[in-house]
Amino acid sequence: MDDPNADISVLTRLELYFSIRQFTRTTRRFAEIFAYDYEMVMIFFVVVEACFQAILNLGGASSDRDSIEQIYLESASIGVSLFGISDASGIPRETVRRKVKALTDLGYVAVSEKTKNIYIPISAFFDLNIFDAFRLYVADIDQFVRTLQFYAKDDR
């Protein structure tokens, strides 16, 4: 490709396509787990985002599961409040409260005794349905990276 703008155009289209496809597929996969309750899916995603952020901050922790779990549970930054979930998702607080109760009953979220924040228990990350949905999410990202690499090779 001789036109440098064409590279950006192709990458932008690919990025838009893959991000929409990723969102649609991931939402559908998690909706299957939560009986197609899309408010529960959104709430779960908001909590997962907050917990992944906490996990990234624990990057220097020991890599064995017990150490990670202990540090994760002791982290003051883990989870998000009901208000934070409502603010991030646009779902009314009372609805968030009811849906969090349902997610807690299912074992997909928990409430910190210390901070009262909602977080994802380590056991939920290893639930086969959740694990498989995240595995497929990573596979979709891998396909996107391989596609980008293919187009990068064409430019050489």
Rank of each mutant, 00 (worst) to 15 (best):
T12R: 05
T12C: 03
T12W: 02
T12Q: 04
E15T: 09
E15W: 01
L16M: 04
I20P: 00
R21P: 00
Q22R: 10
Q22E: 11
F23H: 08
T24E: 08
T24F: 03
T26L: 05
T27A: 08
R29H: 02
F30Q: 12
A31M: 10
A31I: 08
I33C: 07
I33L: 12
F34N: 04
A35P: 00
Y38N: 03
Y38Q: 03
Y38I: 13
E39R: 13
M40C: 11
M42G: 06
M42W: 01
I43P: 06
V47E: 07
V48L: 15
E49H: 15
E49F: 13
A50R: 10
C51I: 05
C51F: 04
Q53W: 12
Q53K: 15
A54L: 10
G59S: 13
G59D: 09
A61I: 15
S62C: 14
D64C: 06
S67C: 12
S67Q: 14
E69I: 11
Q70M: 11
A76L: 10
S77M: 11
G79Q: 07
V80Y: 00
S81P: 09
L82E: 14
F83C: 01
G84Q: 03
R93V: 13
E94A: 11
E94V: 12
V96A: 06
R97L: 07
R97Y: 06
R98K: 13
R98I: 06
K101A: 13
L103Q: 11
T104Y: 04
T104I: 00
T104N: 06
D105W: 04
D105H: 08
Y108C: 05
Y108F: 15
A110W: 00
V111P: 00
E113C: 01
E113Y: 04
E113K: 12
T115A: 02
T115R: 07
